[in-house]
Design a protein around this nucleic acid. Structure first.
Lengths: 353, 353
DNA sequence: CTGAAAGCGCTTACAG
DNA sequence: CTGAAAGCGCTTACAG
């Protein structure tokens, strides 16, 4: 394939027999330039379909107008809606989005972070992998002068802007709903105990249980990784005994989906045999089988706000005096998956939402 | 925020009191260089955490090692899995992925294409918007020397590599399944009639009907845009009469999801009142309510293969003699949403898959 | 108002 | 083996 050829300022200069400085000036704000030559130059530029080479610009002013995004999995409902929000805001501000995935692995997250730095992104948005226990790699990139904003899975150990949902309150409300619906044998399936998101959701769960005088079985707080087989094993273990939970509260969508599949394979009905609920966004849960009670997170808005904070950091000359954490409200969407006890659920209700 | 500072070749040269040429040579293949100075330089480079500025490299050899991807909506199951496949392959080959969305609008697709060109991506992957009727913008970018590979929604009017699924066969097989399951009043909901994907799926549908001597009602071939209200209206119109379809075949997932919601709102059971099936990928359909019969597309593989073809075009010195279209096989996943008639479906079967 | 020059970070012939 | 020079495309003081 031939080398791409884009017309340059030089091409225009030659065609018009003027210097490249003049062309450059004509194409910029247009000060210090004869009105006629300016028009002439702009005419030719348009005609030749000239667009300035951002590579050359980047080299001069050390800005790429690109922001990096590191997520766990692009092909994950939560991630892709957040990315959509990021792209939406970034695009409006003239930034493009470079995407990388950690696949829930710390090593990949580290490599992706370094890659973003070496790519000279103007800033980085990141949601941590399930394996991440320290954030030195992020401190490193911040020291290089690349601002970082965290979203969703954030870390207390990094001083920067963060965008999260009110994980504690969301978990509290959902748990309260379960208890008020008559479920008192609730298991909590969650991810790495080193993540703030895990701790906050767990705390919301525990506090709601305490507030309602519901006893928590410690064996029913299950920390999972993202390996399908392991998840499957944990779910089976939890449900096989005679004394088993009557409700499952999954802290992330991946676990919820795994439960739907596993319960079905085990021949257990939702919510007839076991109720199921979790954190999710609103694009999917109404369509699931059964429609799923969940804490709805405003994923698109999370992406937009994270992008806004990052671009503010990039474009502000001075370091902010202090960093802020935006904590978005969640809402509780009550659907069929937790309705068996409270409303005398039966399968005929399945389509009422 | 301070200007990012990355260490340069010059920093290393100064520290070691050698010329930048020497440093450059030491850091490259290492020919024409004294072994000791080479080690010295590489040591300092490592110590200073040096990574070459890709911007500078790009300026010289006119390669950015970035490929552009234009999809309709990132936050769409089909798109995000394809992107994941693209990212997977690109990453392995040392390319990064810049993402943009058309939101199903031609103008946005045009703008995104121009943006990608102005960003100097080494190549472009694109799936067309629902409004796209001609591809001059793609011919334009190809003429500039930027190779383009199309996937999913491709156009016959562009001579380049393409990656699609066998839309015709998939639609034929699904239709045959419907008919063999006893449905003969089948409506086909699809998108823009100008897209090849629409035409091929429609043809598969029509040919299967003909092969089975099933009459097609032309009013039941419905072309939709991506506006929620319009889709809703079309679905209502289709189902309100006394003589209504007993099965809906949706050509894309967005329409399938809309049908699930709309049918539920209308109080119609799937498949009890109306069967439902469509094109999808396998990440979602088993979890839907009801589990959905669908033509499964290998989305991740589509992304990988499209990326591979594009990178081949980028890295090959010579234009290929001819372009190829990779047509991946689909598979038919039969689930509850089309089981009412054939198997004496009842709601108790809902969890058997 | 216009052009020559320097510089962003790097590579690569070209002298020595 | 090493360094000075030119050049990728652009901008921006600096002369004129």
């Amino acid at each position: 394939m031939s080398i791409p050829h884009h017309v340059t300022i030089k091409d225009i200069a030659q065609q018009l027999k003027v210097s490249i400085s003049t062309v450059s000036r004509a194409l910029r704000c247009g000060t210090d330039i004869n009105e006629e030559t300016r028009k002439l130059i702009q005419g030719v530029a348009k005609e030749l379909n000239y667009s300035p080479n951002p590579i050359a610009l980047s080299l001069k002013d050390k800005k790429t107008k690109v922001i990096g995004v590191i997520v766990q999995e692009i092909a994950n409902n939560y991630c892709s809606s957040t990315i959509a929000g990021i792209e939406d805001y970034a695009c409006k501000k003239g930034y493009n989005v470079l995407i990388s995935q950690s696949h829930e692995k710390f090593d990949a997250e580290l490599a992706a972070t370094r890659l973003m730095a070496s790519r000279r992104v103007d800033g980085l948005l990141i949601s941590l992998s399930n394996e991440t226990r320290q954030v030195d790699h992020l401190k490193e990139i911040i020291e290089m002068g690349v601002p970082v904003v965290m979203f969703d899975r954030v870390s207390d150990n990094l001083d920067t802007h963060k965008v999260v949902v009110d994980d504690y309150q969301g978990a509290f409300d959902l748990t309260a709903h379960l208890i008020e619906s008559g479920y008192e044998q609730i298991a909590h399936l969650t991810i790495s105990k080193h993540l703030a998101i895990t701790q906050n959701r767990l705390k919301g769960f525990l506090d709601a249980c305490k507030a309602h005088n519901v006893k928590v079985n410690n064996d029913w707080i299950v920390y999972c990784d993202f390996n399908g087989r392991n998840i499957r094993k944990e779910i089976r273990k939890l449900l096989k005994g005679s004394h088993r939970p009557d409700a499952l509260f999954c802290s992330v969508e991946r676990l919820t989906m795994a439960c739907i599949k596993e319960l079905r394979d085990m021949g257990l009905r939702i919510p007839g045999d076991v109720a199921l609920a979790g954190f999710s966004d609103n694009t999917l849960t109404p369509y699931l089988n059964p429609p799923l009670t969940s804490v709805i997170q405003p994923t698109f808005a999370i992406g937009q706000k994270a992008a806004r904070l990052l671009i503010e950091l990039i474009e502000n000359k001075t370091m902010p005096i202090s960093f802020k954490t935006i904590r978005l409200k969640t809402s509780l969407s009550i659907q069929d998956s937790t309705r068996a006890l409270a409303t005398g659920w039966n399968e005929g209700d399945m389509y009422d939402s």
